[in-house]
Write a protein that binds this DNA or RNA. Structure first.
Length: 447
RNA sequence: GACCCUAUCGUCUAGCGGUUAGGACACCACCCUUUCACGGUGGCGGCCCGGGUUCAAGUCCCGGUAGGGUCGCCA
């Protein structure tokens, strides 16, 4: 029988990076084994569910490219779905839970208590066989010792997580439960429930958690906790996926950058690490740079234009050839697309401030006549190309008896306002004679 | 408080009883270079502590310590 795995998030309004990694590992395992990946929405807590919150989950998974074989198609709880085990929203499966609870009740395995229904939990330790962690003997805690039973249906008739989780795993024929290690202790309850229903428990694989850089638990508020923040910050999903694969799993051959196909090929449950991992933003940034550099041009332009639009710059007001030429000078020189509007904004506006440190260093009296001479040399160029600009600048430098850098720095600052940026000669060519010379003229007034 | 999991450079990791403990990110230096980035070379830096077992322990066992998780009519 082919594995059937599921990602079962609850709609809290955001998708945690750790949840995304759990989804990824489930998806990878399904792909690796030719199994089925199911998306089930655990929206039993009516108080904090909303269609928007569900949309966040679907959008996040789609952005990462984690397509599901069974589950909802839209964020609408009564909307269409794919697969034969629906509904895939737990809020729509109440009759099923009701029947299961009644079955336990009638067999004396559960009982009513203050309007709620409690499950009769065994007092003996439970053996959890985990593919990742190994065999774990879970004893009762002191509080559980006092009352080992737990609520499976609230007094308002709504079922509780432990119950619905197990019932749906049974109903949906889940063979492998791959989830965060925060569920390991609860697994004893789940195993007891499976026994009560007379169904063998699935295989369990509890994966380590993702922690903050300082080792503390990564909660909602922490930087980088939300998957959506990576989309907002202009990361590439393939970089995020690649990075997430490296947290708690390793290809073991000293490689970091892996294609999805290779990862699917190599991924398996037993080699998942047992210890938690801290999130390293710098390493993600490095992978982002790796993927950004080799982005196909069409996608690069699309993302770049979008990044500018988001920053309030409509690049469509400029000729397409100009935009593309401008972007070509930037490719591979920045990492996240969020950086781009600052990096190359000078192509799309004539008003900008000069970098203060740069101005202090380069806009000094002795550079003014030099910049004037360079401006004149540029003005005499017939074809305003990078090669000709470079030749003119170097000739001018020789004539003045200075190194090229002496002219390069003030010139860059004059035409871009920045001390760093694309290749000077290429950006001048793209900018064109008129703008380039005008900006140099204007800068000389700032000395 | 109880129960469970974990422990290799700052971080992510390789390691499966015998290694000069390897790689990546970050950091530092140098090279390349008009800036930045890329690339190249080199460097810094680690087996949590204490007991065992063994000819031999990062690797196995026990204890400690530290970190994380769980014990809800949240999921």
């Amino acid at each position: 029988m082919k594995p059937r795995v599921r990602f079962a998030p609850s709609p809290t309004g955001f998708l945690h990076i750790g949840g995304a990694r759990t989804a990824l590992f489930n998806w990878l395992y399904a792909c690796h084994t030719g199994g089925t990946f199911i998306l089930r929405i655990e929206d039993t807590d009516a108080a904090r569910n909303s269609q928007e919150a569900i949309g966040v989950i679907l959008d996040g998974l789609r952005w990462l490219g984690l397509d599901w074989d069974e589950g909802p198609i839209t964020a609408e709880v009564t909307g269409p779905s794919k697969g034969d085990c629906g509904p895939y929203f737990q809020s729509q499966r109440n009759a099923i839970y009701q029947r299961r609870v009644e079955a336990l009740l009638s067999r004396g395995l559960a009982y009513e208590h203050e309007g709620a229904v409690k499950f009769k939990m065994q007092r003996e330790p439970v053996l959890i066989k985990d593919v990742v962690v190994g065999e774990v003997v879970r004893k009762l805690t002191d509080r559980e010792e006092a009352d080992p039973d737990f609520v499976i249906m609230r007094s308002d008739g709504q079922p509780v997580f432990h119950l619905v989780n197990v019932v749906d795993d049974i109903e949906m024929n889940i063979t492998h439960v791959i989830r965060g290690e925060d569920h390991l202790s609860n697994t004893a309850k789940h195993i007891a429930l499976f026994q009560a229903f007379g169904v063998p428990a699935p295989h369990y694989a509890h994966i380590p958690l993702i922690l903050n850089p300082d080792g503390t638990k990564m909660s909602k508020r922490d930087k980088g906790a939300s998957l959506a923040s990576y989309l907002d910050d202009g990361f590439l999903p393939e970089a995020v996926v690649n990075y997430l694969c490296l947290l708690g799993w390793s290809p073991k051959d000293n490689r970091e950058k892996l294609s999805l196909a290779e990862t699917i090929e190599r991924f398996d449950l037993p080699q998942i690490l047992r210890h938690n991992a801290r999130f390293d933003y710098e390493k993600l940034l490095w992978l982002q740079g790796e993927y950004a550099r080799e982005l196909p041009n069409d996608r690069f332009y699309e993302m770049a234009v979008h990044a500018f639009a988001k920053a309030g710059t409509d690049t469509n007001r400029f000729p397409l050839d100009y935009v593309k030429a401008a972007l070509d000078t930037c490719k591979g020189k920045f990492k996240t697309f969020k950086e781009l509007p600052d990096y190359a904004g000078f192509y799309f506006r004539d008003q900008f401030d000069y970098n203060a440190d740069g101005a202090k260093k380069d806009f000094i009296p002795e550079n003014k006549p030099r910049l004037q001479k360079l401006r004149d040399a540029f003005g005499n160029i017939v074809l305003f190309t990078a090669a000709n600009l470079e030749a003119a600048l170097k000739a001018t430098a020789t004539e003045l008896g200075v190194k090229a850098g002496v002219l390069v720095h003030p010139c860059r600052l004059a035409v871009t306002g920045n001390t760093a940026g694309p290749s000077l000669y290429h950006l001048l060519e793209v900018l064109g004679r008129e703008k380039a010379l005008a900006r140099m003229d204007k800068a000389m007034g700032a000395f």
